[in-house]
């Protein structure tokens, strides 16, 4: 089970703040591909993924129990 958070444009696109994926393990790239397929217009090329509140690389592996977040381009400040 992998938990994912959606924020800002992605929260509005998906219509949800978070959901749980029933997988034991996947790479960040696989997570992005999954999201793009499930939510057309997701825009995975512009989105970073955080695993347990830390930015991850596309080849990093997500394990069951991890909390992930899709991070679209930030605009704080």
């Amino acid at each position: 089970m992998i938990k994912v958070h959606y924020f800002a444009r992605l929260r509005e696109l998906t219509g949800k703040s978070e959901e749980t994926i029933d997988k034991d393990s996947m790479t960040v790239q696989q997570l992005l591909d999954w999201a793009e397929e499930k939510y057309p217009g997701f825009g995975k090329d512009m989105i970073h993924v955080a695993i347990n509140e830390e930015y991850a690389l596309k080849e990093d592996t997500i394990q069951t129990g991890d909390v992930c977040a899709f991070i679209p381009p930030v605009s704080g400040g």
Binding site: F7, P72, V74, S75, G76, G77
Partner: peptide, 12 residues
């Protein structure tokens, strides 16, 4: 402020 605009997950 430059770093905040680069890395802090906040959206406007």
């Amino acid at each position: 402020i430059e770093r905040i605009k680069e890395v802090v997950p906040i959206w406007k």
